[in-house]
């Protein structure tokens, strides 16, 4: 017994307080196995702190139990009336006609599954229809564009033909074909040509003017 005591004391030293409190609640509730219950009883003899804890739990339990204020009516007629009401309510019912919850759940699952499958099918069909529609639309647009390009190509004579024609006729080359330089570009070209033609002396004077 003394060995047991030591073992419990050692276990107590290692165990966190919460576990001990739980053990004492189980002890008060007589929920531990007989041997452990007996061992703990022995521990209580020697440990004032544990004894205090058990007393507290026991008193709290008794306080709650003692505070019970539910008073059942003593008048037997109340129970007779309640009994009659229950019997009358079940008079036209068959006992045990309820559907099992699992069965209800299975039916719910199946219907949900069927609904889900139908929804998935419908959305897939819709997706395919939209894809086909888009494909046809795009195809049509591509065809239209290529027709337009072909028409434009037919309407516009090519650049080489225009140049040859203007060279033969001696007219100025069509701006639309050769492109036009901007005004700034024109003056820049003229200035650079002029500067290139300057003598060294004139160039130095020109640079000095610019600096001043």
């Amino acid at each position: 017994m003394k060995k047991n005591d030591e073992a419990i004391v050692n276990a107590r030293a290692k165990a966190p307080a919460k576990v001990l409190e739980d053990v004492w609640v189980d002890f008060v509730e007589n929920e531990l196995d007989a041997t452990f219950q007996e061992d703990l009883s022995l521990l209580l003899v020697n440990s004032q702190a544990d004894k205090q804890q058990v007393e507290t739990i026991t008193k709290l339990r008794d306080l709650i139990k003692g505070s019970d204020d539910v008073c059942l009516p003593e008048d037997g007629r109340i129970y007779e009336a309640l009994h009659d009401r229950i019997m009358a309510a079940t008079a036209n019912m068959e006992p045990g006609t309820a559907v099992r919850e699992e069965d209800v759940n299975t039916v719910r699952f199946m219907s949900r599954f069927t609904r889900k499958r139908a929804a998935v099918g419908a959305s897939s069909l819709m997706g395919i229809a939209v894809a086909l529609f888009a494909w046809f639309g795009a195809n049509q647009q591509i065809q239209q564009m290529s027709t337009q390009v072909a028409a434009v190509q037919l309407e516009q004579p090519n650049e080489a033909a225009i140049l040859a024609e203007s060279a033969a006729s001696g007219d100025s080359i069509n701006d639309e074909v050769l492109g036009v330089a901007g005004e700034d570009e024109f003056f820049a070209d003229a200035a650079s040509q002029k500067i290139a033609a300057l003598s060294d002396q004139d160039y130095a004077a020109f640079v000095a003017d610019l600096r001043n």
């Binding site: 009516p73 009401r85 079940t90 019912m93 045990g96 006609t97 309820a98």
Partner: peptide
């Protein structure tokens, strides 16, 4: 039921309902 509902009339209703449910679910 009186412990939970704190009212005798309500508790009687719940008792009645419970017995009816038990009668219905007896096969379960």
């Amino acid at each position: 039921t009186m412990r939970f509902l704190k009212d005798q009339m309500l508790a009687e209703d719940v008792v009645q309902e419970s017995f009816i449910k038990a009668y219905e679910k007896l096969n379960l």
